[in-house]
């Protein structure tokens, strides 16, 4: 599902990234690369810097020092508008608590991402419906988030993340708020996506999610990379 960058090329490059929040150091000289088609899981205890890393890659926050390059864009050189356009074109994000707009139907939540790029409402809904069908939730398209199950909400969130064909899909504890069955379904979905070429960066506490979906696991402790290992997928 990626474009421009072929498999094997670095989609994400972090070089000596440091992030401070006042006195505390969230990231301390982190350097890493993620290649096209990879599924990377970042693991570690609470406060180890996993989510901060995700924010850096998504352009939601800026490093105190160091550089972040995603799909050829040096995020340090982009202003607020540039970062917004970058996220729109290159990034898809899914969150532990879904972050869907309660006022919009499931379909409109997903279509919204395309409409922001200037796509007409009808085109956006058409593309959203295709994704709904691919993800098996077409029957729930006109339902509002509060009426969906956790797993369905996360599928809607995934559909929204994929709407603009992102270079990398970022997932922050995507199964953290789901029951076992729903979590399994989401894991399958992510695995499927990666198998058709979608680059993934997962932040998770869930060892099972990491081993099932990721080809590489990076361990974080106190804002630093404490270890890295490649995995054989269990599925």
């Amino acid at each position: 599902m990626t474009e421009d960058v072929g498999n094997g090329q670095a989609v994400v490059q972090l070089t000596a990234v440091r992030k401070e929040y006042g006195e505390s150091v969230a990231l301390d000289g982190v350097s890493l690369e993620i290649h096209a088609g990879e599924a990377v899981a970042v693991m570690g205890p609470s406060g180890s810097g996993k989510s901060t890393l995700l924010s850096m890659v998504a352009g939601l926050d800026r490093p105190t020092s160091g550089s972040v390059v995603v799909h050829g864009d040096d995020l340090g050189t982009l202003d607020e508008k540039g970062l917004a356009l970058f996220r729109r074109r290159r990034i898809g994000m899914i969150f532990q608590f879904f972050n869907l707009l309660d006022d919009l139907s499931a379909l409109d939540n997903v279509a919204l991402a395309a409409q922001l790029t200037g796509t007409s409402a009808s085109q956006a809904r058409k593309r959203a419906l295709e994704l709904f069908e691919e993800l098996g939730i077409a029957g729930r398209r006109n339902t509002y988030p509060s009426q969906l199950s956790g797993g369905e909400r996360q599928r809607v969130a995934v559909a929204r993340a994929l709407m603009n064909r992102p270079a990398i899909l970022l997932a922050d504890e995507p199964t953290g708020a789901l029951d076992t069955k729903a979590g399994e379904q989401v894991m399958d979905l992510l695995l499927d996506l990666n198998q058709i070429g979608q680059t993934l960066l997962l932040v998770t506490h869930d060892q099972q999610l990491a081993t099932r979906c990721a080809s590489r696991v990076i361990e974080f402790v106190d804002g630093q990379i404490a270890g890295e290992r490649s995995l054989e997928r269990t599925s």
Binding site: L60, A84, L85, F86, R87, I91, M93, F95, N99, R160
Partner: peptide, 16 residues
């Protein structure tokens, strides 16, 4: 603020 954050995460610019 959560909704606004989400909108920005999917590419809504500050001007938008």
């Amino acid at each position: 603020r959560r909704d606004l954050g989400m909108l920005k995460s999917i590419g809504m610019t500050p001007a938008q």
